[in-house]
């Protein structure tokens, strides 16, 4: 079966065509097996190889259960792969580190700390002085749009606000790569849209490398330079698609742009085709 529609082949390139010179993360034949019971193993990820270039916004897109979050956790060093290896700047990833900053769907804020306390936590841990960490953190809190909420506790904030704090908390210790695990998945549609816009604005300032896990096609196309499509059972990379849309991106312009619409429609169709193929087996 032909997977890629011929008319979109001009923007579909295999992963191997990337320049390795600017690679920041290399995932090399990673597989992950979870033992679901004494006799059953579940192959969550099968033979994943992927290179992420420095400064790229890369989304990992796939249905739930395709192992996309697991892949992110492996890059984060939170989970060790069953086989294969992930590298950060040529160094094997053996555990978590401040060069890779996670932002989770569950926010995972420290509830006993105020907004300011949460954002200051990383810099303080890295040995930044209290006054300097305070000043930097206040600036970040303002940047994510929460000025005036510095002394609030997480339980006093809405979901969208919590995720803004979580983003500021991670940005505060200057990770080279942001690892975002369905960060807007728990938010309502309106809040989600606003956070996507704000994330793009923040990202377009310093263009940190971002690895962004999502199951939303719109979100992946809107944000990314590159979309990694995954299929499930076992989790495999199905396609890597470069999103060749101009930046800075504005939602109101982009949604009317036929190129944006074509990306969304083509990706959705590819998922439909693979679902169909799966049902024939």
């Amino acid at each position: 079966m032909k997977v890629v529609p011929s008319r979109s082949s001009d923007w579909v390139r295999p992963v191997t065509s990337q320049k390795p010179a600017s690679a920041i993360i290399e995932i090399d034949r990673v597989s992950q097996v979870f033992q679901t019971s004494a006799r059953n193993d579940h192959l969550a990820l099968s033979d994943i190889s992927l290179t992420i270039e420095e400064g790229a916004f890369v989304s990992i897109l796939g249905p739930s259960g395709c192992g996309k979050s697991t892949l992110l956790y492996i890059v984060g060093g939170f989970v060790s792969p069953t086989s294969g290896a992930a590298k950060m700047k040529g160094q094997a990833i053996t555990g978590p580190g401040p060069d890779r900053g996670p932002v989770f769907q569950e926010f995972a804020l420290f509830p006993w700390k105020t907004v300011l306390g949460n954002v200051m936590y990383g810099p303080r841990q890295q040995g930044v002085s209290a006054t300097e960490a305070d000043a930097q953190s206040r600036a970040l809190i303002e940047m994510v749009g929460l000025k005036g909420y510095e002394n609030f506790y997480p339980k006093e904030l809405s979901g969208g606000m919590k995720q803004r704090v979580a983003l500021a908390r991670t940005l505060a210790y200057h990770p080279e790569v942001l690892l975002m695990d369905e960060p807007f998945g728990a938010l309502d549609a309106h809040t989600r849209t606003r956070l996507q816009n704000d994330l793009l604005n923040i990202w377009e300032r310093d263009r940190k490398t971002v690895l962004f896990v999502t199951h939303s096609v719109d979100e992946a196309v809107f944000l990314s330079d590159k979309v990694v499509m995954m299929s499930k059972s076992p989790g495999r990379i199905r396609e890597v698609i470069d999103i060749d849309l101009p930046r800075p991106r504005r939602r109101n312009e982009l949604l009317l742009d036929p190129r944006y619409q074509k990306y969304v429609v083509d990706i959705e169709r590819m998922f439909d085709e693979s679902d169909h193929a799966g049902s024939l087996l």
Binding site: G76, G77, F78, G95, P96, G97, P98, R100, G101, P102, F104, E106, A108, L109, F110, Y121, G122, Q125, Q126, R169, T170, Y173, P175
Partner: peptide, 23 residues
């Protein structure tokens, strides 16, 4: 205690003992 909270701490550079005491 939420696993992701401990992961967030680990990413900031907290050791296992620091995570126990401070998270």
């Amino acid at each position: 205690v939420e696993e992701k909270m401990l992961w967030s701490g680990a990413a900031m550079g907290l050791s296992a003992l620091q995570r126990l005491v401070r998270i």
